Amino acid sequence: MSSQRLRRVVVVTGTSTGVGKTVATAALTARAAAAGETVVVVKPVQTGVADGDSDAGEVHRLTGCAVQELTALDEPLAPETAARRAGLRLPPVAEYADRVRVLSEFHDTVVVEGAGGLLVRLDTDGGTLLDLAAELAETVTTEVVVVVGAGLGTLNHAELTVGALRSRGLEPAGLVIGSWPAEPGLAERCNVEDLPRVTGVPVIATLPAGASALDREAFGAASPGWFA
């Protein structure tokens, strides 16, 4: 690892669940790896593991990069809810931040994928991904990427998420449209222009719908072309 590189953490959040956050995480990871960076992906909390769900596993399948899943819960619910139903206490966000900081000492880039949206609770004390990003930013270079939908409702969701980040002094590094349809309608075509206008944040990547169906080689070859 070159001592001249700036070590960083990239926090990936979504405006909601199902907007393509995991594929966006994989694309950002593949891009960093293609640039010669050492990369590790961290999923602080994964729910739904009883159903075989694993976002970290999907990122590894698409990129081949190292992944770490810090807490796993059986039911496909918000982390705090799944933990409460299981009678478990989640580690505090500060503990997740410490583990990410340690990883950042040994990797050029640590990509952290959240669960659902920015304010979903990741621990039993009400700590959120926003809290995690803010804590990380105090000691390590931290970028936050917001994954957004393409269709109706995305402008409101994006503005709310960007506003929440700015309320904590975090300026988003960019927006990623997580799933762009093969035949975009009027709303999608307007939104791709309106998203940067209403949020003041650039769209840095547009991922095609169905990208998760690609194999590792095809994903790695195609992903650079999705970035602006």
Score class of each variant (00 low, 15 high):
His107Pro: 12
Ala150Thr: 15
Glu188Arg: 13
Leu88Arg: 15
Ala72Leu: 08
Glu75Thr: 14
Ala134Phe: 03
Asn191Phe: 05
Leu118Ala: 06
Glu105Ala: 15
Arg7Glu: 12
Ser54Tyr: 08
Glu80Gln: 10
Leu136Asp: 05
Arg216Ala: 14
Arg61His: 06
Leu6Trp: 03
Ala211Lys: 02
Thr25Arg: 04
Asp74Cys: 06
Val12Phe: 08
Glu217Tyr: 01
Arg84Met: 05
Thr13Gly: 09
Glu159Thr: 14
Val9Thr: 09
Ser212His: 15
Glu58Arg: 15
Thr25Met: 07
Gly48Thr: 12
Thr154Leu: 09
Ala134Val: 12
Pro79Leu: 05
Lys43Pro: 02
Asp125Met: 00
Pro44Ala: 06
Pro44Arg: 01
Val198Gly: 04
Ala173Met: 08
Leu118Met: 10
Gly163Met: 11
Glu113Tyr: 00
Ala182Ile: 06
Leu90Trp: 01
Trp180Val: 05
Pro76Ala: 15
Glu188Ala: 15
Val148His: 08
Arg5Tyr: 12
Arg166Asn: 06
Val110Arg: 03
Thr161Met: 05
Thr13Cys: 13
Arg7Ala: 14
Gly48Met: 12
His107Ile: 15
Asn156Gly: 13
Thr71Val: 15
Ala187Tyr: 06
Trp180Ala: 10
Thr81Glu: 13
Ile177Trp: 05
Gly126Trp: 01
Asp53Gly: 04
Ala72His: 07
Thr128Cys: 15
Thr124Ser: 14
Asp55Arg: 08
Ala82Glu: 10
Val59Gly: 07
Thr71Pro: 05
Leu103Gly: 04
Leu62Gly: 11
Ala24Asp: 07
Leu130Gln: 12
Ser3Thr: 12
Glu138Phe: 01
Val201Tyr: 07
Val140Gly: 11
Leu122Pro: 04
Ala228Asn: 08
Val67Ser: 00
Val201Arg: 08
Arg168Ile: 02
Val12Asp: 05
Val9Phe: 03
Asp123Pro: 02
Ser104Glu: 06
Val147Asn: 03
Val93Leu: 06
Cys65Tyr: 00
